[in-house]
Amino acid sequence: MTDILAILASAGLWAAVLRIATPLILGTLGELLCERAGVLNLGIEGIMTFGAMIGWLAVFNGADLWTGILVAALSGAAFGLVHALLTVTLGVSQHVSGLGITLFASSFAYYLFRLLVPVAGTPPKILPFQPLQIPVLSDLPFIGPALFTQTAPTYLSIALALLLGWVLFRTPLGLAIRMTGENPHAVEAQGISPVLVRYGAVTAGSALMAVGGAFLTLSAFDSFIPTMVQGRGWVCIALVVFASWRPGLALLGALLFAFFDAFQLRLQTALGGQVPYQLFLMLPYLLSIAALAVTARRARVPQALMQPYRRGER
């Protein structure tokens, strides 16, 4: 019990929560945007892997960190275009197309990495994003080290969650996106092309996912390791359901999830090998499943999710 209190009282825990949450926030927002327009994107796991690899590779080859983020975003957008081509223009199964994108993007990432980066005993490193020093706030006792020692992309991801919430619920563009996910025929009747909206949402959403992946190699860590995404993409898909397709709740869900993840990591060291470490590592996945079981029935699913839209066909 005192162990648990000591963990909760350490600023390191709360700093870790924000760090662990960042890729989840970005991935969840990306998936949420796709699904709000009616397209399930199971490519997320592969897109995050590719974003992590290509962003790192760009920086490794001399680009600056923000260029790395941009390169990752562009690669994600490219995979998003392929997914949109298959699921929106052709209207094939969104499940299978997404899984295909994941298999392709991750194996392509491994292929390029093996081809372009010399094999070495220790994985090559880059200089990642450094924590931002915010005047006054970073110097506050406890709150400073707990909340204000993050890197720039973390603050950016939180801002993006608020921005996406505003766009979706307060702008005509957001109305068009949400309507496309509910009833694309009605969108067409308003003179807006649901095809165009879906293309835009899937492309932009996939770019966000790739940036989430790139955060892993450019900020949380400094090298690329195959399989480092470790199911984060699938967790993001669960978080979208948990958040009932609302960006604000998605932010909250990602933070909550990250809290449990950071907490189990520290509990693991505190208990020092009395319990097999694999049990702790299982917790995040089991937690996602439990969260789905609790929220799935109550969640308001976009009504046209996974429904291909073909003009003049019902």
Partner: peptide
């Protein structure tokens, strides 16, 4: 009513 695609993956 949990989609099995996510749970089987997890």
């Amino acid at each position: 009513a949990v989609a099995e695609v996510v749970t089987t993956l997890l």
